[in-house]
Simulated scan of single mutants.
Amino acid sequence: MKNENKGEKGFDAIALGLFASRLESVCDEMGAVLRNAAFSPNIRDRLDYSCAIFDARGELGAQAAHIPVHLGSMAYAMGDIVDRLSWQAGDQVILNDPYLGGTHLPDITLIAPVFAGETLMGFVVNRAHHADIGADTPGSMPVSSSLEEEGMVIEPVHLVRAGERDHEVWNGILAATRNPRAAEGDLTAQLSANRAGRQRLQALIEEQGTAVFSAGMEALNAYGERLARSVLEKIPDGSYTFTDWLDDDGQGQERIPIQARVTVRQGHIEVDFTGTAEQVSGNVNCPLSVAAAGVYYVFRCLMPPQTPACAGVFRNISLHAPAGCLVNARFPAAVAAGNVEASTRVVDVIMGALAQAIPDRMAAASHGSMNNLA
């Protein structure tokens, strides 16, 4: 039975825990559908995909334990995507543009709105790495110097409108790939994952009622913010700076610095990348959303296991990076390796800064690479 008044009374700890678990289970089921239906080893075997739920404003509500850089960047950019487009039941929007919420071009994102009647309640989203998106070299991870060399750029566009596939968009994407049949299989799997997620989320909303569901999302984010704040307040106030270097950009530029100053004030965190190198000719640049994913990941690692994967967790963390620097690159800078190399080195830089404040809680740095081989 629906209980439209329950949301006005708030959620106790048990009810909120159950609500969070049910959201996460939707994301887990989306991931299972995507993996089992996909064609390529990238998704089936490497598990290079992520699934999440966002509220109607584009704030992260839940995610499965998949790829941090995927959903950290989406959490940072989803609000802008939501505002750019109009939405109706049965839609699915596709994108991979790194400067409009993507990471790098092989990562293709599908977004499906979830409605209760005429009311937009949220979105289900999945992102998956494709073996090819049309670059000159197989794998679509070339030693590139501009975005157009890295493959087909898909700005946010409707792939499905009100349940009907846009065949011009669909065929255009498949035509850009070396293996259209494999691409078709993976994209179909992504569409199916969102359909499954939409059905499950609609069932949850119908069971609880729209007021209770909305109240649950707000309560979950408020809880995440409180829990995160309790951890961040334990970091001593101060300003902590650390610098690390990328070896080179593949185009002849070596020793490329990434610098961050982490300022802590009573549980509020400001991360400033002033001092980082300007964007380079090679493809180790990244948009700010990808750098944000690395920053979020480090702070999330400090939090207890029960911390919900929601937007509230990151509300007390702000970022700044000069426009045109390596971690806030301007279009059309190449970014294929920024998602896998620069983002990993950002993690080491933030860990290095925090090690000055909480040395007993920070792990040693890794070697700052995802070890990709093309």
Rank of each mutant, 00 (worst) to 15 (best):
G90D: 03
I81A: 04
N316W: 12
S50D: 06
S289M: 06
Q88P: 10
G122S: 12
A228C: 11
P332G: 11
V262H: 06
N5D: 11
L174V: 08
V346W: 00
C286W: 00
G122N: 04
G17C: 02
F115E: 01
A56D: 01
L227D: 10
P257D: 09
H167P: 01
H167G: 02
M30W: 05
Q356V: 10
Y49S: 14
L201P: 03
G368N: 07
A37Q: 05
L174E: 05
N3T: 14
Q279A: 03
N42A: 13
P308M: 04
C325L: 12
G275T: 07
M217H: 01
M152P: 04
Q63F: 03
D80W: 05
E8F: 15
R161E: 11
V124K: 00
G58V: 03
H320W: 09
A196K: 12
I317W: 02
Q253S: 07
H104M: 01
N3L: 10
R265I: 12
R261E: 12
S366G: 08
W87S: 10
R255N: 11
D237Q: 14
S214R: 15
A260T: 06
R345C: 07
M30Q: 05
A364L: 10
V327L: 02
T263S: 00
A374P: 09
D97L: 05
A211S: 14
G238C: 15
K2W: 11
L220E: 03
Q259Y: 08
Q356E: 05
G134E: 09
R165M: 03
G250Y: 06
I53D: 03
G282S: 02
K234F: 10
I43Q: 00
I154D: 02
A52C: 04
V160P: 02
A334W: 00
A293W: 07
T210M: 14
G338F: 08
E155H: 09
P332C: 12
V346S: 00
I205R: 01
Q356N: 01
P41T: 06
P257H: 14
G151W: 02
S214C: 14
Q306K: 13
F19P: 07
A131I: 15
I43P: 01
S86D: 04
R46T: 14
A89F: 10
A215C: 01
Q251S: 15
P98F: 09
D28Y: 10
L100G: 14
V69R: 02
I14P: 05
L60R: 08
Q266G: 13
Q199F: 10
D83Q: 15
G197W: 07
S86C: 15
S145L: 07
D55Y: 11
Q266T: 14
A64V: 12
P106F: 03
S144K: 02
K6E: 09
N339Q: 01
N221P: 03
L201Q: 08
P236T: 06
C325M: 12
V271Y: 03
